[in-house]
């Protein structure tokens, strides 16, 4: 099977101007992936499915990933010419900038007829708040139907073109997207019999304010 770079070049020849970026994977698995733009995503997916050399007929796995905004500290070395005319000095300058976060949907594609894979596609949203839509690949692979619903439910990614985009795991009136990294779970740790670690910290907020020593003994006995 061709490498991701070869695949990208072939896709660029077929779809000139398509937004395609290779994401290299440094781990020993060496499963590199391809970020595709929204505009031609469905066409590219259809091509991957029908191309005789690839025939990626099975979309095995659809995953949502949340990448929150993060502050990046960059250190750049700037050469400052010495005003006195001496040798130029190299000064390290640190700058902080906010790298905007995004939600990502990862598709693992395999070919059952040609027995190869995986080819990994990634779709990214503009940000995490108001531009959260990506094109749905359910029209191309039926197996995306429930899995995209799950990503919508747990991450809040809007799939345009999905035939039936409803919550699938949580109830309909639920308002949060619990798999996002900044989700705050409801606090119902009123009482924990053997708290420790994180649970201890959550349970302690519910403990009554520490009374005087004899009263505390009484409470313990009750």
């Amino acid at each position: 099977m061709e490498t991701v770079e070869q695949l990208r070049d072939r896709l660029l020849a077929r779809f000139p101007g398509a937004a395609l970026t290779v994401v290299t994977n440094p781990s020993p698995s060496a499963q590199h992936s391809l970020v595709i733009g929204h505009a031609q995503a469905v066409e590219i997916a259809t091509f991957l499915r029908d191309d005789p050399a690839l025939r990626l007929d099975q979309c095995s796995n659809v995953t949502g990933v949340d990448w929150p905004d993060k502050e990046v500290t960059e250190t750049t070395k700037v050469t400052v010419p010495d005003p006195a005319g001496g040798p130029a000095k190299v000064v390290a300058q640190t700058s902080k900038r906010l790298e905007p976060g995004y939600l990502e949907v990862v598709y693992h594609l395999y070919s059952i007829s040609l027995r190869h894979g995986p080819v990994i596609l990634r779709l990214r949203t503009g940000n995490r708040t108001d531009q959260v839509s990506v094109p749905s690949l359910t029209p191309v692979w039926r197996s995306c139907e429930f899995q995209e619903r799950e990503v919508y439910d747990l991450y809040g990614v809007q799939f345009t073109g999905h035939p039936d985009l409803r919550r699938i795991l949580m109830w309909d009136g639920f308002q949060d997207h619990p798999m996002r990294r900044d989700y705050v779970e409801p606090d119902d740790y009123q009482w924990e019999p053997t708290p420790h670690g994180e649970v201890m910290a959550k349970a302690k907020q519910h403990y009554p304010a520490a009374p005087a020593a004899p009263a505390a003994k009484e409470g313990g006995a009750a």
């Binding site: 994977n25 440094p26 781990s27 020993p28 698995s29 499963q31 796995n61 995986p118």
Partner: peptide, 10 residues
């Protein structure tokens, strides 16, 4: 602690 990266195993 594995190094940064990703893997799909099945």
């Amino acid at each position: 602690r594995p190094k940064a990266g990703e893997a799909y195993g099945r």
